[in-house]
């Protein structure tokens, strides 16, 4: 019986851990955290903006490193899911060169009509990060703070209740 109870506890623990990995990173809270034995690995960070019921025409997000173990480097930026933001967002190319934990400002706008703009929570960008252990002593990990700087409707008015979040995507 003891081994059966232990097995059930392990299964329950694994289930809880799996669910926590799918939750988006709240704005200005803990970001993505990733740990692995390999010295170098790549992860994706999906960036979301939730404009509620207002069509999102322009957004700007600043992603800040919070806690970094080892080295985290931003190596690429993809566009979002929605057609209005499918092109890669604007960013400073210096963010790719600097190994400062992936601090970057992302922004994009669309001149589409309100009916062609996304509503609610939409993935607006995907970041590719390279994580490298420091001297092999510690496993590289990164946490990010996501700060929404601009969320505007088609008239350029701020969307008051908008929010931004991030979530770890693929890892390899």
């Amino acid at each position: 019986m003891k081994w059966l109870a232990s097995l059930l506890v392990l299964v329950l623990l694994a289930t809880l851990l799996g669910q926590s990995g799918m939750v988006g990173v709240p704005q200005k809270s803990q970001g993505a955290k990733s740990e692995r034995a390999d010295p170098i690995r790549f992860v994706t960070l999906d960036l979301f903006v939730d404009s509620r019921e207002v069509p999102l025409a322009a957004w700007q997000v600043e992603i800040l490193p919070k806690v970094v173990k080892g080295t985290a480097t931003l190596v690429g930026i993809e566009g979002g899911d929605h057609a209005a933001f499918r092109a890669p967002a604007r960013y400073d190319p210096a963010a790719l060169a600097k190994a400062e934990g992936g601090r970057v400002i992302l922004a994009a706008f669309s001149l589409a009509t309100a009916g062609e703009l996304p509503l609610g929570r939409v993935r607006v960008a995907r970041l590719h990060l390279r994580l490298e252990d420091q001297d092999g002593a510690r496993k590289a990990s990164a946490e990010f703070e996501v700060a929404l700087r601009v969320a505007a409707d088609v008239e350029g008015r701020a969307i008051e209740r908008a929010a931004a979040s991030a979530a770890i995507g693929d890892e390899r």
């Binding site: 600043e62 400073d92 970057v104 400002i105 922004a107 929404l148 700087r149 701020a158």
Partner: peptide
């Protein structure tokens, strides 16, 4: 203007929207 908006020096942590 778009390049200025995302320039790393343009906004700092905690800067107002």
């Amino acid at each position: 203007l778009g390049a200025r908006a995302v320039r790393l020096a343009s906004l700092t942590q905690g800067a107002p929207a």
